[in-house]
Design a protein around this nucleic acid. Structure first.
Lengths: 202, 202
DNA sequence: ACCTGACTTTTTTGGTAGAATAGTCAACAA
DNA sequence: TTGTTGACTATTCTACCAAAAAAGTCAGGT
């Protein structure tokens, strides 16, 4: 679950694994390769981690942790709800970039994540939804936003963001996604955020 | 390309094929089945249509034609740009329902449409974009809407709609999508349309 | 406590034979 | 001439298996 209780050695392994995953994705990285990168044997990896999947899981978990922490820091600020939302959009794009490099969000259609990793995304998504809901709810209370249901609006917002991403991957899919492509998506999200904010402003 | 120049017999074939596709999808319908439904031989089908794929293409084309016609009718009305947009959203959901029944939008991940059918969707998408662009552009000229680029906004709108759809299919995927599920998506699109309209209103 | 080579088990891959289905055509009928 | 067909061929899908690759285990060494 947590990744803060990892030993230094475990962190080194996660680093090496992350480097490999970033290049080739989960399916195309072998335990032997990771081990060789670290100058140890494959069997040693199993001393520190139960399975290969568990390593992958923790690599994702680390990135998500970073995101969640940043997000919680945003919530504590004294800025307006609008500014918080904009900052959220920004961090959202940054996280996407990270996960993209890890080939976690499969660009291919065969996006069959193992249940455990799916679960990770699910709990992450839940946290994110709570976060969005509280920004919107706060904004409503402060008379900065105007909407019927902050919960439903938060859900919509989350769905639009995920949707734009999916749409994007679907059409780009061929060739690797480079910086330029991510910029393009970021740009679209920016335009959306403007209209959206205006749409819920009081 | 067109399907208005079809003979009566061809229309009957398309009807029979559509009925089958609606139940089982392209992959699970054989030419023999369609032929048997019509009480003719498979060879006869090839007298009227080049390939099985061509039949499927024309089935889709018919539905898209209906949509485009309705859309063009909307454009000619004297209603406000906002009302036109809302009507567009409405028709959009209806079309989705139709195509869903035809199992055209695959709910599975393996959404590998044949290039020809992909092309069909592409030209459809282009028409749709022009349509959206002109509504937004008109709205801007009439000082009803306020935005920097109607073209980019139209594109965003299209992407959001497609994205919400993709997101929806991805999460529902298991089991067939029934009326209830479509209602749920329609509901979300409705909420989006409210916020979006407010976001671009002058 | 940490590490490893040698091992077993599981998963992936590639090929292939047979079945299912798309698509063709010469001949027949209206 | 237009439409139809049974019998044909060509292509694609499926089920299967054996070999290769990779995951995962373990007894024993430092």
């Amino acid at each position: 679950m947590n990744c803060s209780t990892n030993t230094d050695k475990q962190k080194l392994i996660l680093d090496a694994a992350q480097y490999r995953f970033a290049h080739y994705g989960l399916g195309k990285v072998t335990m032997d390769e990771i081990a060789t990168d670290l100058g140890i044997s494959k069997a040693s990896l199993y001393y520190y981690f139960e399975t290969k999947e568990e390593i992958f899981r923790q690599v994702i978990a680390r990135e998500q942790d970073v995101f969640i922490n940043k997000i919680e820091a945003i919530l504590k600020r004294k800025s307006s709800a609008s500014e918080k939302l904009l900052e959220y959009f920004h961090q959202h794009v940054l996280l996407l970039d990270k996960l993209l490099n890890l080939k976690i969000i499969s660009l291919q259609a065969d996006n069959v994540l193992h249940p455990i990793i799916r679960e990770l995304f699910k709990t992450f998504s839940t946290k994110e939804l709570v976060f969005l809901g509280s920004i919107l709810s706060d904004g409503k209370i402060q008379n900065e936003f105007s909407m019927e249901s902050p919960e439903k609006t938060a859900s919509l917002l989350q769905h639009v963001l995920l949707g734009l991403r999916l749409r994007f991957f679907k059409t780009v899919k061929n060739r690797d996604i480079g910086e330029m492509e991510v910029k393009s998506l970021a740009h679209e999200i920016k335009l959306f955020s403007k209209i959206f904010l205006r749409g819920i402003s009081h």
